[in-house]
Design a protein around this nucleic acid. Structure first.
Lengths: 233, 233
DNA sequence: ACCTGAACACCGTTCAAGT
DNA sequence: ACCTGAACACCGTTCAAGT
């Protein structure tokens, strides 16, 4: 009864219409830019203020705190995800396209991966995506709770495959180069596990990027097959 | 050729055997304790130093920096995951048990969810898990790259289902209470999406915890069905 | 070999004061 | 209504100095 109050930008009253000063919108846009360029650790209220040539603390007029700003930025990421209309193509194709879209969006905004585990996605864009994917699974033939279970399963798969992928990307300095050095490092870590080692040395000549795509597709197809099976029962 | 050097504790030379002073081991244990209690944001080198009744900066003798300490702590989490021996039960049961174990371990150490996207899991315990799960999928009958794809698919699913779950848990203050208030907040956010709203109001009388278990199992079964299908082809 | 404190360059946030 | 700077309570990390 006396639990901590759950707070979120999306629950508070929105600010009045934008006056002549800066707008929340432009602050969020600048924040997203900064996050894309410098990552989650690269965003500070002071630096963001400077970027907008504002005093360090002016932003607090528009935003309660940094967390709230991140919630706002997070929702912008959801805005980029495209949910195809399941009417035009089959549900499998729709789901597949959604999955690929989500993955690409997250890879484009690696900092968003850190937020998935930190704050529920309650923004209007996230809600829009949830609503549309829900409709998609409903159209596919799922009923009752299964609609949401199937939905959760698909997005869980995409998140789970993509989030660790980002860890690798950032470890490699966000570029493709030095893949050999990386492989050597992994091989060193795998010492004592001949099985793993064999595997690591196997793909010396493969493009790691292409490899990950293959892996993603393998899992996605499996996932969808499994969901289809639920549908048949 | 001139890429940024990739660094990790697991690549550097280990420290000499422990002398009479503090040990790396005890520092990591204290760090894990602190992380469990206060989360990722609650761990600071200063506070950890104090907890060990050491000067604030003494830890730097044992650990290169905070990131390295987190890598060490992260691997401790992997140590808690149990991979059943696939010889005794079928591979599906093994995979299923592994999945549940992983989920429980992550939920027990919510801070680890933040690390999954930040650093590759290269510690000895993580490697041990990778090695054993690989063997599991091999024993199941997967061959070549499919062994690793299937492996990646399963862990992706577990990560993806569990990481956002943590976001909800922390938003609710890590307790079960105030679920109603939470639901009201979500409903408010879902305004304008009658479909979603209907769904949210549906489970007013359900235990959210039990609900998540159901959801997890639904997806897991789907996942395993899909993998089994790969096996048949 | 191990530990310390001071110091540096940062943080997020509050708040009284300005326009 | 909007913006500011000073101030507070923190950070991680370096390094010369101690034992």
């Amino acid at each position: 009864m006396t639990g901590k109050q759950f707070t979120s930008v999306w629950i508070r009253e929105p600010r009045k219409a934008t006056g002549p000063g800066r707008s929340r919108q432009e602050i969020v846009r600048a924040a997203v830019e900064m996050l894309d360029e410098q990552g989650l650790g690269g965003l500070s209220m002071r630096k963001l203020g400077a970027k907008l040539s504002a005093g360090a603390t002016s932003l607090y007029w528009y935003v309660a705190n940094k967390d709230e700003l991140l919630e706002l930025a997070y929702d912008e990421v959801w805005a980029e995800m495209t949910v195809p209309d399941p009417g035009r193509v089959g549900w499998r194709d729709s789901a597949s396209a959604l999955a690929h879209s989500m993955r690409q969006v997250i890879l484009r905004h690696p900092w968003s991966a850190d937020l998935i585990g930190s704050m529920p996605a309650l923004g209007p864009h996230a809600m829009g995506v949830a609503d549309r994917t829900r409709k998609m699974f409903k159209a596919a033939g799922f009923t009752g709770l299964d609609i949401d279970f199937a939905n959760a399963t698909l997005t869980a798969y995409v998140f789970g495959m993509t989030i660790p992928e980002i860890a690798w990307n950032t470890a490699m300095g966000e570029r493709g180069y030095d893949a050999d050095e990386m492989r050597a490092a992994v091989a060193r870590a795998a010492a004592g596990h001949p099985d793993l080692l064999e595997r690591i040395n196997m793909d010396t000549h493969d493009d790691p990027q292409a490899m990950r795509e293959m892996c993603f597709d393998f899992g996605l197809v499996s996932m969808l097959d499994g969901l289809e099976r639920r549908l048949a029962t």
